[in-house]
Design a protein around this nucleic acid. Structure first.
Length: 823
DNA sequence: ATCGAGTATAA
DNA sequence: GTTGCTACTCGAT
């Protein structure tokens, strides 16, 4: 017997010759040794809930008798469980092999008297982690005996006698990043059927670098030369096997590098057997399609950055170049794609440029990983499933898996995923969302903005909102505000008061943990990336819970809960607005959880007093905070209407920092020239407090546009294709340009971002849309850009500060002011 | 003028 | 595979 401590990284199961499943946990010990622990004593199971009238004892025999081919029931146990907080008796059905779960559960469903089958879709390896309280990247104690297993490329293989999770975290893993370059002439994308891989680059810990290519050139660079492409692929495999990474990472490797490598390797009959057990790389078609390597966490950085960091980064696209620039302040090497093929065919020294470009990509990917790794590690530890799985999950999935893991602590049965029909039913029912205050347009000085701290999570906690807590009308129950339902009828929901629900308990736990971490961060007074990542993850998981209630595909879906949460939210914000008005404050805007007031004759101190008074009336866990004081704020009118536009404003704080919401300047589908001009005008009005200066600036830009002095690049409008080209009912300019691109052989489809310029000519706008690269410098349609882009973006701003509508329109009749500014 | 489709954003 | 709410353009009628 030996005792081993190690950090789990990957978990899966294999089937032995006798049809028994064995769990394998791959991980690293503190001394970085690779370990694989094998547990042969874990058995798959699922639950059955019987109909009320059913005789439990009698059913056990029926269920024990279920059998199909090699699948049979090993054991049936009666267990006390909770089903949405209701105490019930469930039958735990133990089977021999994970593959028997779907077979036997399907047979069980057909038995009359069986109400429901539960937890039959929880994958075996995930089930193991939950049941054994093992969390990836948290130290784990194993007792067992060492076994010899030649098929595993590990330092130790251990057969588990007992296993126990500890508390120590791991924040350093051996990481290897890679990237491939493929042959292309730049006109079309590389095609894995004919275009070879020309080079591979690796970047790893302690400055590890490696470039492999298969054309011998005279170079100072440290390059490994392979004889041909097939040898290059073998060298790729060898490099990974020698490096022994815990994480193999790349950028878009799920979508490009690995699929390409697989295709090319197939061509030569090479096995991409880089798994720790020498198994091949597997392409998993489910979802977006991902690449799985046994024993090694394969992480495609792009997926994680898009989903988890996406919101906070505000990027125009998620190319490696953009992301590296945002996170590292570094950019890719420049390389003309059209040159790749030419240079490669010429066998010249210029191939060096390709190799350096290749290495730089691998290096940037590695460095990005170093920045986001804390977030990945923390999510992994919170949710408790594998790193390469959480790195591909959406917020909704993360919450759901967190609830699945925690359900065990509450003895709750996990609800089933909705079937197609139920999902469609759910989609039919909607509910009212947040409240948005109609702002008064104008320029304001001295503004205070307050917001509710984590409004929806705090409502869930404060009012015990949980599908299992919904009860009948009861004096003691938490009573939701009146909800007007989709049929126009008044409704109210009640949530139990005497018991505390599963989901509120969990959210409360997340909030308390986060508060503790924030306290520590405050006390430490130095940057602690791990704690900051942990705090961020706790917040996003708590915040995503409301969305989960309303998502039709969720296991814990509850329209009632979602509707009650927004109803409480509207109630709280409306009451706050009301109180502010009663205290004589001028309310300017409010949206969901925030409220802005013009200070006017009041002091900041008084405003802080208001927050205090509101907080004294709020239940525990709910809190109104000061978001910030702003020295000026601009609110504009809706187009062609007299009321203020919602969700569109610009503020400048006392440090001169702008906070712009909703304006065209932050939208992707407006031309740069309009966006840039609008931003500048807002900046001048808010920071310099000079409308005249702003008008002067606007006038100059308009002149330049008209005189075609502006770079045509700034005329580019970028719009995303949300569907495939053929499935559009109405053909907008971006669809038309996408058609042109397709004709050229550029692959475009749903998700592609289409850039175009509107050029001079006759007809409707889509007929004047052209690819930027095909435009001459003065070809753009100045009138279109003035009338449809720049003037609309500026008009609303100048109107809000008291200038007439036509001030920017030269062709219309000129007002006095107009004459003054335009001459 | 008015409407629907389409896109994007706020919280 | 989070929700709802808002605002705008473009094309069709």
């Amino acid at each position: 017997m030996v005792d081993v401590q190690f950090y789990p990284i990957e978990v899966d199961y294999i089937t032995n010759a006798f049809g028994k499943a064995a769990i394998r946990i791959f991980g690293v010990a503190k001394d970085r040794k690779r370990i694989c622990c094998i547990d042969r004593n874990f058995e798959p199971y699922f639950y059955i809930i019987l109909k009320k009238e059913a005789d439990t004892e009698g059913f056990i025999e029926d269920i024990k008798a279920l059998r199909e081919n090699d699948s049979f029931v090993k054991e049936v146990l009666i267990e006390d469980k909770k089903n949405f907080n209701r105490q019930i008796e469930a039958l735990k059905v133990v089977v021999n092999h994970p593959a028997d779960v779907p077979v036997i559960s399907k047979l069980a469903k057909e038995i009359d008297g069986v109400e429901e089958v539960r937890e039959n879709d929880i994958l075996f390896a995930r089930r193991y982690l939950i049941d054994k309280d093992i969390i990836p990247l948290i130290l784990c104690n194993v007792s067992g005996h060492v076994i010899k297993d030649e098929s595993l490329d590990v330092d130790f293989a251990i057969e588990i006698e007992s296993i126990k999770g500890e508390l120590e975290d791991l924040n350093e893993l051996s990481v290897l990043s890679f990237d491939i370059e493929t042959y292309t002439t730049g006109k079309t994308y590389s095609n894995s059927k004919k275009d070879p891989i020309i080079s591979v680059a690796f970047y790893g810990d302690d400055g590890f670098k490696k470039i492999i290519t298969w054309k011998k050139i005279d170079t100072e660079l440290d390059v490994t030369f392979a004889k041909n492409e097939s040898e290059l692929i073998n060298e790729f495999i060898k490099t990974i096997k020698e490096y022994k990474p815990s994480c193999l990472i790349g950028y878009f490797t799920d979508g490009f590098d690995f699929p390409y490598l697989i295709d090319r390797a197939n061509l030569y009959g090479i096995k991409l057997n880089i798994g720790i057990d020498n198994s091949n790389v597997k392409f998993n078609k489910r979802g977006m399609g991902n690449i799985k390597i046994n024993g090694i966490a394969h992480i495609d950085i792009l997926r994680f950055v898009k989903v988890i960091m996406g919101g906070s980064l505000q990027l125009e696209n998620y190319s490696l170049d953009e992301v590296a620039n945002a996170l590292l302040g570094k950019r890719k090497n420049e390389l003309d794609f059209e040159k790749i093929g030419l240079v490669w065919d010429s066998n010249s020294k210029e191939i060096e440029d390709i190799l350096e470009y290749n290495l730089k990509d691998a290096e940037l990917t590695y460095e990005i990983f170093k920045v986001i790794s804390f977030d990945i590690y923390e999510i992994t530890r919170l949710i408790g499933i594998l790193m390469d799985e959480v790195a591909r999950m959406s917020f909704g999935q993360l919450v759901e898996w967190y609830l699945i893991r925690r359900a065990k602590d509450f003895n709750e049965l996990i609800p089933n995923k909705p079937r197609f029909n139920e999902k469609s039913d759910r989609l039919m029912h909607t509910y009212q969302g947040a409240f948005v205050y109609q702002p008064e347009p104008g320029l304001y000085g001295e503004i205070a903005v307050f917001d509710f701290k984590s409004l929806y999570p705090s409502i869930i906690v404060a009012h015990n909102i949980d599908p299992g807590m919904i009860s009948d009308e009861d004096k003691n129950a938490y009573e939701s505000p009146v909800i007007i339902n989709e049929n126009g009828k008044e409704e109210k929901y009640y949530f139990k008061h005497d018991e505390y629900g599963f989901i509120p308990s969990i959210i409360k736990d997340l909030i308390l943990r986060r508060n503790r971490i924030k306290d520590i961060i405050k006390k430490e007074k130095k940057e602690d990336k791990i704690l900051e990542a942990r705090s961020y993850i706790l917040k996003i998981v708590a915040n995503a819970t409301y969305g989960m209630f309303g998502y039709s595909g969720a296991r814990w879906y509850s329209r009632e809960c979602a509707a009650a949460i927004t109803a409480f939210g509207r109630d709280y914000i409306l009451k706050t607005i009301d109180s502010a008005k009663k205290e004589g404050y001028h309310v300017i805007f409010s949206d969901t959880d925030s409220i802005a007031i013009a200070l006017e004759n009041k002091t900041k101190q008084e405003a802080l007093g208001f927050i205090k008074r509101i907080n004294s009336s709020l239940p525990d866990f709910m809190e109104l905070e000061l978001e910030n004081f702003y020295s000026r704020g601009l609110f504009v009118m809706k187009k062609n209407e007299l009321e203020g536009a919602k969700k569109k404003y610009a503020l400048v704080d006392e440090k001169g920092k702008l906070k712009i919401r909703g304006f065209e300047t932050i939208r992707r589908d407006w031309s740069y020239v309009a966006k840039e001009t609008q931003l500048k005008v807002l900046e001048i009005i808010l920071k310099d407090n000079s409308v005249e200066k702003a008008l002067e600036y606007a006038k100059k830009v308009i002149e330049d546009v008209r005189k075609k002095k502006i770079d045509i690049k700034k005329m580019t409008i970028r719009t995303q294709l949300r569907k495939n080209i053929g499935s559009y009912d109405s053909i907008g300019p971006h669809v038309r340009v996408a058609e042109d691109m397709k004709k050229k052989g550029v692959p475009v489809g749903s998700g592609s971002i289409i850039s175009y310029v509107i050029v001079e000519g006759k007809g409707i706008i889509r007929d004047k849309a052209k690819l930027p690269e095909d435009c001459k410098p003065d070809e753009y349609d100045a009138d279109y850009y003035l009338n449809n882009q720049i003037i609309p973006a500026l008009k609303m701003i100048f109107e809000a500060v008291g200038y007439g509508k036509d001030i920017l329109m030269e062709n219309k009749e000129q007002s006095k002011l107009d004459k003054f500014f335009w001459g």
